[in-house]
């Protein structure tokens, strides 16, 4: 029966009474066992609902705690991310301010650029942000560009010296990283190879004139 046809029956106010009329006239008798079966089924549903409600009540504080931990984690992660972005902007800005060679931008400002982060090694000065650095290479260029920031001014006769490790495991002297009064410095290392690749990079504070790793390891990128 279509909905509008059913509405005629509803409007007549007889829909439930028609079924009642048939129940009176019918020889079919409602089985007595059916009542208990239906009530048991309803009670079983009520039990499941109560169990779900109990589970929900137990889960609610756990979910709240998990959400709180997640929010705190997101805030911490965001702070770290903002710090990282600020570091990145600071380094690039200082590089732009200082760099004269256009080759720097040919290496770092390209989709073919690859970057690793140099992280501080050893004990840090209390209350001071740790030094950091980056090494850029480019699949289309032969130079490696290295930048460092927040590096303490070295003592007299000591310099920051960068060493790279190539894929064969050989250590390469990439040169001295000179820093300004703000602790920023960069160097351009001509590798002689298009698209150079390295497995490790270490920045040592060591005596001027040294040509092998030694002294104090300040920054490092190590393969994991």
């Amino acid at each position: 029966m279509a909905d509008e046809e059913m509405k005629e029956f509803d409007d007549a106010g007889v829909t439930d009474e028609l079924a009642g009329a048939l129940a009176i006239a019918s020889p079919h008798r409602l089985p007595s066992h059916l009542r208990a079966r239906v009530l048991r089924a309803a009670e079983a549903r009520a039990g499941r609902s109560r169990a779900l409600a109990l589970r929900a009540a137990w889960l609610r504080p756990v979910a709240l705690a998990a959400a709180l931990v997640l929010v705190i984690g997101l805030v911490v992660w965001n702070v770290q991310l903002q710090q990282g972005l600020a570091d990145e902007r600071s380094l690039l800005q200082q590089l732009r301010d200082n760099a004269k060679e256009s080759v720097i931008f040919e290496v770092i400002d390209s989709p073919a650029a690859q970057k690793v982060v140099l992280r501080a090694v050893g004990p840090q000065r209390p209350g001071a942000d740790p030094p950091y650095g980056k090494v850029y290479t480019n699949a289309n260029q032969t130079q490696a560009v290295v930048m460092g920031g927040r590096l303490p001014s070295p003592d007299a006769n000591r310099v920051y010296h960068l060493y790279l490790t190539d894929r064969a495991g050989a250590t390469i002297d990439a040169g001295v990283l000179a820093v300004d009064a703000s602790g920023f410095g960069y160097l351009i290392y001509e590798t002689g190879i298009r698209g150079p690749s390295y497995t490790a990079a270490r920045l040592y504070l060591q005596s001027a004139g040294a040509n092998a790793p030694g002294g104090t390891l300040v920054l490092s990128f190590e393969p994991r």
């Binding site: 059916l34 009542r35 239906v38």
Partner: peptide, 8 residues
């Protein structure tokens, strides 16, 4: 109401 539903 069960009697009505059952008979129908």
């Amino acid at each position: 109401y069960a009697r009505r539903v059952y008979a129908w």
